[in-house]
């Protein structure tokens, strides 16, 4: 799925003190002009990047999932109205889109895509992974979800139904994964640490390694 030019571009970046690709220079020119026009400051751009890269990561979603596993009443509220339920966490990162949370079960598996571009539940999952924006993922997960999920390392039994949710400007989806076995003794905070971004997109199952070794 990865683009074949990726490695070449990495090499370019590492060999030069400054990134000299045409796009990098175009981006630099864009930022310089916007600063000149007084529309932004470089430090403000830095802040936004840090906000999305670090403060609004999938950890928010992981906390939501962990609470839903621990608290059946919260789980019910979350599945009934995801947007209202996550307000209980007061996450930063201003997402106004409706959030719909769909729960995996013994015979049902959900997976999320945006077939048009890259709509993604930022408030709970941060920035989308690179493959989420890839044309191959966007088309194949709709056409042949079982096969693609298998290639991504998630083999689903033939009897499991797969639901593919197409995100839009108005509605964003997040998957509530099944709670792994052997996690009964864990606290909400400990549970949040075993929840992965990929499981909340629906392309991976969760395991609890420490418990498996026992």
């Amino acid at each position: 799925m990865a683009d074949k030019h990726e490695d070449h571009q990495h090499a370019q970046t590492h060999n030069h003190q400054h990134d000299t690709s045409p796009q990098a220079i175009r981006a630099e020119a864009l930022e310089a002009l916007l600063i000149e026009k007084g529309l932004l400051k470089a430090s403000e751009v830095d802040d936004v990047i840090v906000q999305y890269e670090e403060r609004v990561g999938p950890m928010n979603g992981a906390r939501v999932v962990a609470r839903a596993w621990k608290d059946p009443a919260f789980r019910e509220r979350l599945l009934a109205d995801g947007t209202a339920a996550i307000e209980e966490f007061s996450f930063e990162g201003g997402q106004t889109e409706k959030l719909v949370v769909v729960a995996n079960g013994p015979n049902i598996h959900h997976v999320v895509v945006c077939t048009l571009c890259s709509c993604y539940p930022w408030a709970v999952l941060g920035l989308p992974p690179k493959w989420y924006k890839d044309p191959a993922y966007r088309s194949r997960i709709v056409r042949e979800p079982r096969k693609l999920l298998g290639e991504m390392g998630l083999e689903l039994p033939a009897e499991t139904n797969i639901n593919v949710w197409d995100s839009s400007a108005e509605v964003r989806y997040m998957v509530l994964p099944e709670r792994p076995e052997g996690t009964e003794a864990l606290s909400e905070e400990e549970l949040a640490l075993i929840v992965t971004r990929d499981a909340m997109i629906g392309v991976a199952h969760l395991q609890h390694k420490a418990m498996e070794k026992r």
Binding site: E6, Q9, H10, T13, D19, S21, Q23, A24, A27, E28, L30, E31, V45, I49, E53, E54, G57, P58, M59, A62, G126, L127, P128, P129, K130, A192, L193, V195, T196, R197, D198
Partner: peptide, 18 residues
């Protein structure tokens, strides 16, 4: 914490700037 699950979100710095 599952911030990026070990994967860089941007290939090059200009992408995060944009």
């Amino acid at each position: 914490p599952p911030l990026v699950n070990g994967e860089l979100l941007f290939d090059e710095p200009w992408q995060s700037r944009v």
